[in-house]
Design a protein around this nucleic acid. Structure first.
Lengths: 193, 193, 193, 193
DNA sequence: CATGAATGAGCCTTCATTCAT
DNA sequence: AATGAATGAAGGCTCATTCAT
């Protein structure tokens, strides 16, 4: 119980205030426990952080995995749009792990720069493959004209990255949804013309 | 002299390791001075940080200003592409202030969350206006079909955001340039079809 | 245990060397503990100081309270003399809190000038009332001639104040006792003639 | 010019906030000069303090000297009362040096405990002698009855000490004057009966 | 005379961590 | 599983002082 509450609070605080900006005492206090209690569950601050990091990363990977898999019944356009809206749903449902991942992928604390780069590159590849699949499907379906896949993949991944960033600094829901739809529409036009 | 060296080193270290992760002693050491010397030039850590922040922000605004202005002789496509390549040049030429801005716009230390939001919203508006201008030019030129401007602006700004993020986590120059060109190409296609 | 030793040592050092002249490290060292240990018991230097101040003030108030109360069997002269000798006994028995009170009533650190003034005014009133009572008793007894009470109260309180000061800068016990007795004798003569 | 302004400001600040509580930078700032300028006139903080101390002490001694001397035309009662009112005038006219003397006679910084004790004992003797003279005059005049001088001297000096303290913690002028007059009246009664 | 720049020493405080209970 | 007490290390900051200008 405490173990999990610690993880949750740590995820939020590390995500909001950074590794160095978050004191173990703050985490403990929010959980309603004294600082040394943390050491009953985690070896030290780094261990707690890494545990949280792994969990956030896994949550992110699960999202990517789901995106990769259930592309059965839908056509390419629907599938690609679905990727974006799933990403959006996912951010809305659990912003903490996503803010966490975004933060530490962009700005890892020095002691795990490498670890994070490796972990993230792996996810990136999986995602890339999945998007490739969808693009190829689109071409097979004939809605996209027959062209090289790479540019479309690059463009779509860029779209996703842009939307990730924007999610965390545009607070307005309506604004974000408009941007999502507009950006996707232009992408889709560009892909089909 | 020392004053400026402090600013430079602080910009880099704050950008790389965060506000809490950067000790004044580190900054001082790199400059070749003892910690208390900092206080001859800056009131305290926050003041040094804010000074650096203002400078980085101004550097960013200068970039936006330039983008807004010299769109005379070029046609719309060239102008829009030029925005991206200028952004790229700008990142390459002075990555420090840009990493700094990116970091603290996304993850401001709590004591200046508001300040940063205000400052950034202002830049965002200026940039939006400039892009609007270019899109309208494109429509006037007849290369883009006559359509509402908003979607194209949203898409282009998203493109820029995505590229910003990618600049700082894809180290390879070639990879980045490919992504930039591909994403722009799809955007342009989408805008003209 | 440590908590109380800290209070004792702090009382003495703050009394002897002043708030700014006393480093927490000194206090800690005398107690046989490292400086940060203090923070397990007190929020900060100010808190430790205030705790000590409250205790010293309470000790002083207890003295005044006792003086106010047990004036039953004795006649006025004995009672008044007793006040002085109790004050003397009290200083001898616990010089630390008294030196502390004297110091900070006369020279409060700016951050608690008001607090101290309030606290002390209250004690002063209680003491004044008690002395008034004794003087009135003296008049009722017929040993003091029937006169207005105020001048006698003023004179007696002045006597006490003078003796307070002198206690802390005349080190010799005999000298002090002589002064006490002589000053009281003249006062008593003055009150009865 | 600056030299004297430094002394004045130092006297006031050292008197109000104590040796350790007063930074050279504060003194310099009030004088309108930067800290290192102080070292053009005084060797160091201690030297400035000592200079100020000597001056304050001298001012105090001057007062005592005056009291000792001009007791020509007046009778004993007038002379003694005059001592008190001069002391009062003196405090009113220049409270700074007097607060200073009071503070550091009671609570000397450790590095000049001895110096101060010596200096003050000397003043004390002079004052004692002067008061003795006045008392003897009173006896010669026949207004005081023929008695040993010591008790009267002790009582009168105690009176002065009490009034010194009270001057600095009772802010009201009227209150203070009442106390002065009342205390003196009782003393005089006691001395004459 | 005065100042800007710099420093060594030291202070208050926080923090991660340990250990006995 | 949890806590109170304690600590080493470090951080931000102030201060008296020096020195070249």
């Amino acid at each position: 119980m405490t173990r999990n509450k610690l993880k949750e609070v740590a995820m939020r605080l590390f995500g909001e205030k950074g590794y160095d900006g978050t004191a173990l005492s703050e985490i403990a206090k929010e959980v309603g426990v004294k600082t040394p209690a943390i050491y009953a569950f985690y070896e030290n601050k780094e261990d707690l952080f890494m545990t949280v990091f792994r969990e956030a990363m896994q949550s992110y990977n699960t999202f990517i995995q789901e995106v990769s898999e259930e592309q059965k019944e839908l056509n390419a356009r629907e599938s690609l749009y679905r990727v974006l809206s799933r990403q959006y749903q996912f951010y809305k449902k659990s912003p903490e792990p996503n803010l966490f991942v975004l933060r530490y992928v962009l700005f890892p604390p020095s002691f795990l720069k490498e670890t994070i780069e490796d972990a993230f590159l792996h996810s990136d590849e999986t995602l890339t493959k999945a998007i490739e699949g969808l693009i190829e499907q689109g071409i097979r379906e004939g809605v996209m004209k027959d062209q090289s896949v790479q540019p479309l993949v690059d463009a779509f991944l860029n779209l996703m990255d842009g939307l990730s960033m924007q999610y965390f600094y545009y607070t307005s829901k309506e604004l974000y949804e408009r941007k999502l739809n507009n950006a996707f529409e232009i992408f889709w036009n560009g892909a089909c013309s």
